[in-house]
Amino acid sequence: MAEVLVVVEQLDGVVAKPTFELLTLARRLGDPVAVVLGAGADEAASALGQYGAGTVISVQDPAFEEFLVAPKAEALAQVVQSVQPAAVLLTSTLESKEIAARLAVRVGSGLITDATDVRSDGSTTQTVFAGNWSVTAQVRTGVPVITVKANSTAAEAAPVDAAVRELPVTISEASRTARIIKSEPKKASGRPELTEAAIVVSGGRGTGGDFGPVEALADALGAAVGASRAAVDSGWYPHSYQVGQTGKTVSPQLYIAAGISGAIQHRAGMQTSKAIVAINKDPEAPIFALADLGVVGDLHTVLPAVTAEITARKS
């Protein structure tokens, strides 16, 4: 069967959940081959094998750490030329989308971004126009390059023994131009990653800047915390937690919007959530039109009461 490249998202050999989802989708198209760009392939191999990757290609070059994106795209193009896969799947992160874009240019392939499904014939589903339309599309030129949103499918195990194979690459001077001169790691929140979480609790203007009740409910539910653009623009919560058109797109099992009116900008980032709960003081807030359950009330009263009840039930 044809091989399908899956670009692995990992840190120090710990594989991110969306990669297992990609491997699950890749098995519909052929035999998944995992590609680790940078260190960590040996540590990641057994987890990747659990989801069907019989081969793990390890590609390493110091340029991956020193320069932005371009060296990884150049390396991946060489992997594609070597393996001649039926398709290349990547997770829809900022960096991987850019790798995909540059790869498509380099190998002359069609590109589909932000797919929410990939079928065995290679056709994809995307949600567009702020979640109001669904588009089915298919690449018809070259090796299809497809980025898939996190949480698009449930990861299903299919254990095989994974063999790690080193693949040497050559990085040209042309890819060594956008130099990373400083990198300050961010403090981890200790909560699930926003795009991967099964439950997201988000706060907006209605928090008045106090995210305490939002965080407390999130922790009681084991959820990630999100924020609206209004909350981020007010400096109440970091931008990396923004849900919406210019932030993250999330598609959790449950999305709880607290004090968020539901402007189109925000809806674009959460409309495909399986279930939506809204808490807002304004009964006219557009978010209620999306909600499976809407509570017209003050989040500062409602959220702590819910958190207290969950905590009581747990103990």
């Binding site: 069609g110 109001n132 359950l293 409602v302």
Partner: peptide, 25 residues
């Protein structure tokens, strides 16, 4: 174009959810 759109479908309108005023908890 290197990819082709096979179908475009508007999202079905969401069924109205339950709206509860928060009085007395």
């Amino acid at each position: 174009a290197s990819s082709t759109v096979l179908e475009t479908t508007p999202r079905p309108p969401k069924e109205a959810g339950r709206i509860v005023p928060d009085s007395d908890g």
